[in-house]
Design a protein around this nucleic acid. Structure first.
Length: 433
RNA sequence: GGCGCUAUCGUCUAGCCCGAUCUAGGACGUCACCCUCUCACGGUGAAGACACGGGUUUAAAUCCCGUUAGCGCCA
């Protein structure tokens, strides 16, 4: 009597576009449920739309799933390879008198005659849902071009693939009673259903390009972590029932359940995604962080020598929310500073006290060894202001401006060490002379 | 237009099933303060919500009905 058969779920994207945020969320929930239950997570490519489906999109979807770590089991099914099967099932329906031909002169569509009844099913997130099929029109299952409609194909595929739970977006909720009627007509047992709330844009309308990045690949190239994206998406429409928000994959798998899936649509909030991604960046083990941010950046151009690179990424770890932000914030490490704030430039240059301090500092730094010892830099710099009876920030702020061209940076002494003696002296002398 | 789903801070949500523990909890964002050489990180705190209207009940965010709104599917 035990639940002998393992659960089987599937993600069924159409290769008519990139894998987008909504698709990932659907894939994720399927994946989490499969892994938690020790079942199978299958992939099916719904490529019956011959004109809009492309191998490039399919490839992109697979790569995105791999990058996210949503690895599928068994071999990928393609609907395009199963056309004969759909025709066979459609014919069976016609033979049984449950579907009929419509159209003329060779161009016939096949239509399923909807039985007039009340259809009730138990959705894992919505509970009991009832539709009255008297409201339904008969359902076209084979188009006149000889290709199946979505409705026929999903039902046949899910049955043939042994799918036990269909986890998909709420937009399919109204299709479900029609599908169940098809299962019944075919003498098949319908699977269980779980309909997920939809992800909307910030204005409450369906998420689309005009809300910003929707393709997973865009997040990848901006330097988001799969962990961050997945964690955020998991929280969009689900929660663990505790106040914990930062969850890694093993925890998500362990704690996931349809019982805690929210019923209402959610707005995608890039701000919170960024925050969460920053949390995951800070949580990575040191070596892992180094490897991943390095892999990210080395594809984009030459990196500084290892020591300098290490210093840089260490100093910026608490300051970035995505890997992509690193070079934006630390551009002064690679380029001469741009003194864009003319007012501040003028203010510092005309302040004799500041210039005097910077000159003294220059002399001292010039006579030092390399800048490896951050504490020594700290000491020497503070001595300059102390003997002048001033505060550390009287030199630190101008110095920061000189070295970076701005007012925000990591700690000034770490920064000096990062830049190195040559660069510091060069920027200083250019400024004070 | 028909049918369906949904409705708690600006946003994501807890609480709703099993009414009293809710002067409604957490997080993002915002603001303030602390840390501090700046910016971050981290810490503390503040502002901020039960869509509306009826009912049931000693008592409703929680149950019921309606309205409204959003979304979805179909037309």
């Amino acid at each position: 009597m035990s639940n002998s058969s393992a659960i089987r779920v599937r993600f069924a994207p159409s290769p008519t576009g990139y894998l987008h945020i909504g698709g990932v969320r659907t894939a994720l929930f399927n994946y989490l449920y499969a892994r938690q239950q020790g079942g199978k997570f299958l992939l099916r490519i719904e490529d019956t739309d011959r004109v809009r489906s492309t191998p490039e999109f399919e490839q992109e979807i697979l790569e995105s799933l791999k990058w996210l770590g949503l690895e599928w089991d068994e071999k990928i099914e393609h609907q395009s390879a199963r056309i004969d099967r759909y025709r066979e099932v459609a014919k069976e329906l016609v033979d049984k008198g449950l579907a009929y031909e419509q159209g003329d002169s060779g161009k016939v569509a096949l239509t399923f005659r909807i039985p007039k009844t009340k259809v009730t099913f138990t959705d894992l997130v919505h509970g009991d849902v009832t539709y009255d099929s008297n409201e339904f029109d008969d359902l076209v299952i084979m188009k006149s071009d000889g290709f199946p409609t979505f409705h026929l194909a999903v039902v046949v595929d899910d049955h043939d693939m042994g799918i036990t739970h269909i986890v998909r977006g709420d937009d399919h909720l109204p299709n479900t009673p029609r599908h169940i009627l098809l299962y019944q007509a075919l003498g098949w047992r319908p699977p269980k259903y779980a309909h997920l709330p939809l992800i909307m844009g910030a204005d409450g309308t369906p998420l689309s390009k005009r809300h910003g990045a929707v393709a997973v690949s865009a997040y990848r190239s901006e330097g988001y972590l799969p962990e961050g994206l997945l964690n955020y998406l998991a929280l969009l429409g689900w929660n663990p029932g505790t106040n914990q928000e930062i969850l890694k994959m093993p925890e998500l798998i362990k704690q996931f359940g349809f019982r805690r899936v929210v019923k209402s649509n959610a707005q995608f909030d890039p701000e919170k995604l960024r925050w969460l991604n920053g949390q995951h960046i800070r949580m990575l083990a040191g070596e892992d962080y180094e490897k991943r941010i390095t892999d990210f950046w080395k594809t984009k151009g030459p990196l500084p020598d290892k020591d300098r690179w290490r210093k840089l990424i260490t100093l910026y770890r608490p300051r970035i929310e995505t890997f992509g932000k690193l070079m934006d914030q630390a551009s002064y490490c690679f380029n001469e500073p741009e003194y864009k704030d003319a007012a501040m430039l003028q203010e510092i240059k005309s302040n004799q006290t500041s210039i005097g301090l910077l000159r003294q500092l220059f002399e001292i730094l010039r006579d030092m060894g390399d800048f490896e010892d951050v504490h020594l830099l700290d000491q020497k710099t503070r001595q300059v202001v102390e003997t002048a009876g001033l505060k550390p920030k009287d030199i630190i702020h101008p110095l920061r401006f000189v070295l970076t061209g701005g007012t925000a940076s990591p700690g000034i002494f770490d920064l000096m060490s990062l830049l190195g003696k040559d660069a510091c002296l060069k920027r200083l002398s250019a400024f004070i002379t």
